[in-house]
């Protein structure tokens, strides 16, 4: 109990005193998870459209892969990206390993199947008559896609939230491809791990608490956005 109270006190002190390093880590966490979620949404939503609305052989297989991807171990994603970006790897020349970009790539790889799977499930749950109705109104391909996306907007919102949730708490891949370099690739999760290893539970719990506050704030923002989308 004392340990927890100490952690809370430490978190409050870090936030109150305006610890530059903590603010910088929190900002970096927001930027990297935000960018990863954005990339996952930009890649995942068109993929979702193709999988959920297209008619082609292997459609079910692709959806099964996306569904299986929701359980894709972050460490494996990190390993895959690390091998690709390693200096002697196929994309080593890009010099991205141990940079925030490497972290964005790895985390987007984790979030994309989540976005695809949740979004596809939402579209498939729309009444079949609705698809016929939209086409019967004379919709061309783009109008059809727009109206289907509009009808499934809540599911798409949930899909993006799921993608964000999948990466914000992730540590394995971020550590592997980011390297937890102070001032460069250190984020809230990767910063907490070495503190635990050193036995600095107070600082680690404080970082965890800040991460929790960050997640709650982002979720509250997304939930407000979700309610607005629902009313539209």
């Amino acid at each position: 109990m004392d340990l927890l109270l100490d952690a809370l006190r430490e978190a409050m002190r870090l936030l109150r005193t305006g610890d530059g390093e903590v603010y910088s880590i929190t900002l970096r966490t927001a930027l990297i998870t935000g960018a990863s979620t954005l990339v996952a949404a930009l890649v995942g939503l068109p993929l979702w459209l193709g999988i959920a609305l297209g008619r082609f052989p292997g459609q079910r297989v692709l959806l099964a892969i996306a569904n299986a991807g929701t359980g894709f171990p972050p460490v494996v994603a990190g390993l895959l990206v690390a091998v690709l970006l390693w200096r002697s790897g196929p994309l080593g020349a890009l010099g991205l390993i141990y940079t925030p970009w490497a972290m964005v790539i790895a985390q987007a790889l984790i979030a994309t199947p989540l976005v695809v799977s949740f979004a596809a499930a939402g579209v498939m749950a729309l009444p079949p008559a609705l698809h016929f109705q939209i086409r019967a109104m004379g919709a061309d391909r783009m109008q059809y896609l727009w109206l289907v996306a509009r009808e499934a907007r809540l599911a798409l919102f949930v899909a993006v939230m799921a993608g964000f949730g999948g990466v914000v708490s992730e540590v394995g891949a971020a550590m592997m491809v980011g390297g937890n370099l102070a001032g460069e690739t250190r984020v809230l999760t990767t910063a907490a791990v070495p503190e635990v290893n050193r036995g600095n539970f107070g600082t680690a719990l404080a970082l965890g608490l800040i991460l929790l506050i960050f997640v709650v704030m982002v979720s509250a923002m997304l939930t407000t956005g979700q309610a607005r989308v629902q009313r539209r």
């Binding site: 009444p127 008559a129 609705l130 016929f132 109705q133 939209i134 086409r135 019967a136 109104m137 004379g138 919709a139 061309d140 109206l147 509009r150 009808e151 539209r232």
Partner: peptide, 20 residues
């Protein structure tokens, strides 16, 4: 087909009104 569908309209058993 899209152009021809625009000369027609369909009413289904399920009114299938959009969420608007």
């Amino acid at each position: 087909q899209v152009r021809l569908r625009r000369q027609t309209a369909t009413v289904f058993q399920d009114a299938a009104l959009l969420d608007m």
